[in-house]
Structures are given as C-alpha cells and as structure tokens.
Simulated assay, not measured.
Amino acid sequence: MSWASLLAGAPFLVVGALLGGWAQTALFAGALLVDWIGTYVTSRQGNWRVYSAAHWSGLFVLLAIGESVAAIGVGAGAHGGFYAPALFGGAALYLGGHVLFGNRLHATVKVPRLVTVAVLLVALPGAIAVPPLVALGALVLVLAGLIAFETRQYAEQRRELRQ
C-alpha cells in the first residue's frame, strides 16, 4: 500500500467530515477510490489481489466496532450514563459470546474471559458514575489485562502452531 495514495485521499476525508450529509458520502467514496487506484498503480506490476479474505473481513469488523465506539462517545455527551452500559455491556457480551462459541466448538471454557465478563458487569455501576473518558480508560485497562494474560498463557501453543 502506498502512503501517497493515503495522503491523496486524506483531503477528501477531511472535507467530507466537515460538510456532512450526501457530500460526506460522496467525498468518502472518492477517498476510497483514490486509495484503491493508488494501491493498484503502486503495487508490483499492477498485480492487486486480496490474498486473505478473512483478514479483510476482520478489518471490516474492527472498523464497525470502532465506529460503534465513536458513536457511543458522541452520544455520551448528551446522555451522561448512556455510554457505560453500551461499552461495558457490549464488551462483556462480546467476550461471553467467545466463551460460548469456544465451548460449542471445542468443549472448553476459557475461565479468564469469564472472569473478565464478571469484572465488567460488576464495574458497570461504577462506570456510570464516572466521566466517560475515565470509564473508557478503565475498560481499556481491563481488556488489556485480559490480552496480556492470554498472550502469556497461550504463548507456547502459538509457538507450536507456527512451527
């Protein structure tokens, strides 16, 4: 991917964000087109293929989650405690879904994720009482703790899979 194509599309994104409405949609589409064309032109010999559809779909899911968090943040200013159930409950629901899915496929239960779900649900009333940025910081710390623990706990399994 070329930085030039990303930079060329940036003005479309900025102007679109400032204008809003249909102009925003058109300018965002223009930024996407500029990026696609730039990537195609600068790729090796014009050979532009998606080698991992799963990777791309995962990126779209991350984008959707990010947009959801941004929308919650915008609504937080107008509705005080509105954001906390969506942030903490949404993260708890996501992790709970992972636990259920893993149980269904592999007949295992990831206890650290269940503990994290419990921590998020117990912390929810406190998250309602604090400013949105503090609650978001607490959520990030809890999830980062889970990631650090699982990274360390499953390091050997990942190493074996890579070999």
Rank of each mutant, 00 (worst) to 15 (best):
W3I: 13
L7G: 14
G9D: 00
A10F: 10
A10K: 00
V14Y: 09
V15G: 04
A17S: 15
L18T: 04
L18H: 09
G20Y: 00
A23G: 07
T25P: 02
T25D: 15
L27Q: 01
L27F: 07
F28G: 03
A29H: 02
A29I: 08
A29D: 00
L32Q: 05
L33I: 15
L33T: 15
D35L: 15
I37C: 06
G38W: 05
G38P: 03
T42C: 12
R44Q: 12
G46R: 07
G46W: 01
R49M: 09
R49P: 00
V50N: 00
Y51H: 14
A53Q: 11
H55M: 09
W56K: 06
W56Q: 06
G58F: 02
F60T: 04
F60Q: 08
L62I: 08
L63I: 09
I65S: 09
V69I: 15
A70H: 12
G73A: 07
G73H: 07
G77S: 01
H79L: 11
G80V: 10
F82P: 03
Y83K: 11
A86G: 02
G90P: 00
A91S: 06
A92E: 01
A92G: 03
A92F: 01
Y94H: 09
L95S: 00
G96C: 03
F101K: 13
F101S: 13
G102T: 10
R104T: 10
R104E: 10
L105Q: 12
A107M: 05
V109L: 13
V111K: 09
P112F: 02
R113G: 06
R113W: 13
R113I: 07
V115N: 03
T116V: 08
L121W: 04
L121S: 05
V122N: 01
A123M: 10
A123Y: 04
L124M: 08
G126A: 11
V130K: 01
P132M: 11
P132R: 08
L133E: 14
L133Q: 14
L136R: 03
L136V: 09
G137W: 08
L141D: 05
G145R: 04
L146E: 01
F149S: 04
F149L: 12
E150Q: 03
E150H: 00
Y154Q: 07
Y154A: 04
Q157R: 12
R158C: 06
R159K: 09
E160P: 01
E160I: 15
R162L: 11
Q163H: 14
